[in-house]
Computed example of a mutant assay.
Amino acid sequence: MIRVGTSGWVYPPWRGQFYPEGLAHRRELEYMSERVDSIEINGSFYALQRPSSYQKWAEQTPDDFVFAVKAPRFITHMKRLVDVEEPLANFFASGILALGRKLGPVLWQLPPNLTFDVKVLAAFAQRLPRTTNEAVEFAKGHGDKVEGRAWTSTDADRPFRHAVEIRNPSFAVPEAADILRDNGIALVIADSAGKFPAPEELTADFVYARLHGDEELYVSGYTDDALDRWAEKLRSWTTDRDAFVYFDNDAKVRSPHDAMGLRARLSRPEGG
């Protein structure tokens, strides 16, 4: 299965352009989820969300909808993957498990100024939980930051997927890909208009792609030809694996339209 959506859904410039005039803000997720089948939650990158928020988002979306969750920048950008036992537990206890069957991969976006260190990446990758039951056990070690609102249960034991997006050229080496592959973690395939490294290496049983702009980062849309090329790539990568694809070119209200355009292409018979 190839799921296609956007990175986030709360963008004021979309109102009146993508979202209809007069649509209540609280209904924007519902509106978007009728047009794509997955969305990347961005707010979790900036601050720990609450279980009530994850529950609300799950309730507002169709039964077969899936969310990816962007992990906290506190872990990736501030702690830089080191000494993160309690921050990880806080994140896993913050409510992401309340999504239940709608929980998709967790995205770990690394900062551009973080350079590759074999020991750091290996230790971090090995520490991540591989199932929701493992995530529950990890979450039980949470600190005061989520005390009184921690979510430390799961409705079923499911695979717990992780994807890492690199942004420093030092990570574009076989050793980094091998660490991710050994731990079943996807190396994000990122299209960033040439700004960041863009290896197209499959390191897990699923593909995670982020499309940040065809020619200008976060701004430019994708032409019909570009969407055709991405549809062809995704088909070639997913003969034996799932894929999650998110458009992050929101500045000019391109991402929802590009997501729907790619979904339409992928729904056609190959060669049709």
Rank of each mutant, 00 (worst) to 15 (best):
N168C: 09
K102E: 01
G213Q: 12
K119C: 09
H142D: 11
Q49S: 15
M260I: 02
R265C: 01
F196N: 13
A156P: 11
A47Q: 13
A89H: 13
R80H: 04
R161S: 12
R35Y: 10
S153L: 09
A93Y: 12
A231K: 00
N90L: 01
V84F: 06
S38W: 04
R149T: 03
E165D: 07
L99H: 06
I189G: 03
F206C: 11
H77L: 13
T115W: 12
K70R: 14
T76H: 07
V4Q: 03
S220T: 14
Q109I: 10
E200K: 15
P62W: 00
Q126E: 15
V82Y: 06
K70D: 06
G213I: 08
R149S: 04
L107F: 09
R101G: 14
R268K: 15
P112E: 02
A204I: 03
D214G: 11
H162S: 03
F247K: 06
R158L: 14
D224Y: 00
R130G: 14
R210Y: 06
G8V: 12
D178F: 07
P12R: 05
A58E: 01
E28W: 00
D258A: 01
N133S: 15
L187P: 05
P199W: 01
D228P: 06
L48G: 04
S44H: 00
Y222T: 09
R158G: 13
P199F: 04
E200W: 05
P269A: 03
L187S: 11
G5N: 05
D64Y: 07
L211Q: 13
L217T: 11
F124Y: 06
F138L: 15
N90M: 02
P174F: 07
Y54W: 11
P62N: 03
P174S: 06
D224R: 04
E28F: 00
A125D: 03
G272D: 13
A264C: 00
D178P: 06
P112K: 00
W9S: 07
N42I: 10
D182M: 10
E34T: 11
T154R: 07
W237I: 02
F91I: 08
L103D: 00
W57Y: 13
F206R: 05
W151T: 07
E216F: 07
L110K: 04
S267T: 09
K102P: 03
G22Y: 05
A47V: 12
L202K: 14
L110E: 08
Q55S: 14
P169G: 09
E200M: 14
S7A: 15
S255T: 04
L99M: 08
S267P: 05
P174T: 06
D83K: 15
A186F: 11
M32D: 04
A264N: 05
Q17Y: 12
L202Q: 14
P174I: 07
S44Y: 00
L128A: 04
F171A: 04
F196K: 10
E28S: 03
K252W: 12
K140A: 08
K79Y: 02
R235F: 08
A172R: 06
Q109W: 03
G141L: 08
Y31N: 10
G261Q: 00
V4M: 07
A98F: 01
